[in-house]
């Protein structure tokens, strides 16, 4: 436990010091919220969801912010590999599992904080807060997305040599995961042949879960969301831990 805490602590210190990264990764979901949200608010009516488009969009942007930060945090162990710091950790008398879990919890925490920032900003943009329980539900889903995708990032990073593949991963893996998740539009409005694909996207359940918490309405039963996303988190953690063990020191 103390080892996991040690590695988590390092992530936190690095996070707090990287002002440009914090601002950088808030800006994208924030611009989406401002431009898409206000731009389409008067044009788009979400069928069956009652509220306006910006209310629909907020949970998606919170999820997006958590997703991108967590994948990035996971992949960051490549930097540690390149700058040699990973060696220092790997040669210590601690297990690889502890190191990996520490990295995962650290990455998930930064991702969670980033999501929180968007969530708090959203209150000023018209999020009509539900109740405390709703917020807690949203927090739970944010944490799960954070854990799952940091582990996912670590799994990818364990197989990558340097950051050259990073853009590729972002464009062909992370962006589709975001795009197909129903963060920007309701999955029911998609052509029928795409719906099954969105249902295969684990983030869909995260977005829907957060949406249920923040707006009280969702297209997928929140319990199903919890089970699917929870299962995905366990799976990526196992895969991440397994692949992290194969890293050559």
């Amino acid at each position: 436990m103390d080892i996991i805490y040690t590695i988590w602590l390092r992530s936190m210190k690095r996070y707090i010091r990287s002002k440009s990264r914090i601002i950088g990764s808030i800006s994208m979901p924030l611009f989406f919220l401002l431009f898409l949200g206000f731009g389409l608010n008067s044009v788009v009516q979400i069928p069956g969801m009652g509220g306006d488009y910006i209310t629909f969009l907020i949970p998606g942007m919170v999820a997006m912010s958590v997703l991108f930060t967590s994948v990035f945090s996971g992949i960051q162990i490549i930097w540690d590999k390149q700058f040699g710091f990973l060696k220092e950790t790997l040669v210590a008398p601690v297990s690889r599992l502890e190191i990996m879990l520490g990295q995962t919890v650290g990455g998930a925490t930064t991702a969670f904080i980033q999501g929180m920032i968007i969530l708090i900003l959203s209150i000023f943009l018209g999020l009509k807060s539900g109740n405390v329980l709703g917020f807690l539900i949203a927090f739970g889903f944010m944490a799960l997305i954070g854990l799952a995708f940091t582990a996912f990032g670590i799994a990818i990073a364990s197989k990558m040599e340097d950051m050259t593949g990073f853009q590729l991963i972002m464009n062909f893996v992370v962006f589709p995961i975001f795009g197909l998740s129903g963060a920007l539009f309701p999955i029911s409005s998609l052509p029928p042949f795409i719906v099954p694909i969105t249902l295969l996207d684990p983030l869909t359940y995260g977005v829907e879960g957060i949406r249920y918490g923040l707006t009280g309405v969702s297209q997928i039963n929140p319990l199903i969301c919890l089970v699917v996303l929870g299962g995905f988190t366990v799976a990526t953690t196992f895969i991440g831990a397994y692949l992290f063990r194969t890293i050559k020191s």
Partner: peptide, 24 residues
């Protein structure tokens, strides 16, 4: 190590502290 293995974003103290915690 032959190549540097410090965390450049941390202070000298924090690098030491991290190591001390890793070795319990």
């Amino acid at each position: 190590f032959q190549d540097q293995s410090l965390d450049e974003e941390l202070t000298a103290w924090e690098n030491m502290d991290f190591h001390g915690r890793l070795y319990r």
